[in-house]
Write a protein that binds this DNA or RNA. Sequence first.
DNA 1: GTCAAGACTTGGAATAAGTCTAAATATCAG
DNA 2: CTGATATTTAGACTTATTCCAAGTCTTGAC
Lengths: 153, 153
Amino acid sequence: MERQVPIDFVDERLNKGLARTGLRFTAQRRHIYSKLLEKGDHPSADEVFMRAKSDMPDLSMATVYNTLDTLVKCGLVRQVNHERGPTRYCSNMEKHHHFHCTTCNGVFDIRSDPESGEPEIHMPPGFEVLQFEILFRGICPECAAKQAAEANA
Amino acid sequence: MERQVPIDFVDERLNKGLARTGLRFTAQRRHIYSKLLEKGDHPSADEVFMRAKSDMPDLSMATVYNTLDTLVKCGLVRQVNHERGPTRYCSNMEKHHHFHCTTCNGVFDIRSDPESGEPEIHMPPGFEVLQFEILFRGICPECAAKQAAEANA
DNA sequence: GTCAAGACTTGGAATAAGTCTAAATATCAG
DNA sequence: CTGATATTTAGACTTATTCCAAGTCTTGAC
Ligand SMILES: [Mn+2]
Ligand SMILES: [Mn+2]
Ligand SMILES: [Zn+2]
Ligand SMILES: [Zn+2]
């Protein structure tokens, strides 16, 4: 499950991101960023805190919030908000969409076929689109399997 | 700006929605629902409260939350969450997408061309899509005009 | 290396958004 | 009209996040 993320990879990306904005490289920032890359899922700030704290016991929640904001500003992490509830964070900065499982609340990356351009939606005049994202809702494979198993029982 | 919503139209939709779920027709529910339809924008619960309270001074915030939940359950209103911050509510139940202005935080409906089907995104195996929505981000006409005016000055 | 300036981290207080509770009130079938 | 049940209400509570002020770390100048 855990992705092995070469430490140099983390350092390099982080360094570049921080440099662009004139911010400092710190142990906490590296640690939190590597935890995000490691799992590649969409944790809330609280989940990030728990994961990161296990390896760095003096870490504070305030720093998690600060760092997540910093990573967003550096362009290394995206915020994800698809429903009422805590913001989630996504460390995959390739262009992609999301699938939200309405059963388990999980968020999954959906790769954006590189050739498919903008969706064919006609914008009313004057709206300048800078970016778009498609949000799919439904049932994830794991939840679908569980439901099928229960139906059989 | 205000849309004239015939009271019978409100009553009829609300009655149908409530009937489907066995809930009662009340003055508060009608009032809040008609306020939503009247403006057709995407207010937060707090904004709904302020608008509705002006005409119904004893209305409580708790009722606004309860009613909005009720309207969602009845299929008369959608929740909209595109960013950290209070949930917004949309009373347009036709299939449509949203444009989020990153300058003024406004949310605008984008009609979904009825012929354009699902976006051409390849789902990984096992994901069952029940619904999708496209979220556009950018600058709304009003904010674009303001920026242009400032640039000229 | 030492040092000051500024950046960063931290715990805890403060705030914002939403949920819960229990008592009062309204609705509606009979 | 009446009783059973649904709804509304104020306020307490929780959760997620932001703010703050004090302490610590990093860095560039000497
Ligand atoms: Mn993602
Ligand atoms: Mn809408
Ligand atoms: Zn699921
Ligand atoms: Zn705008």
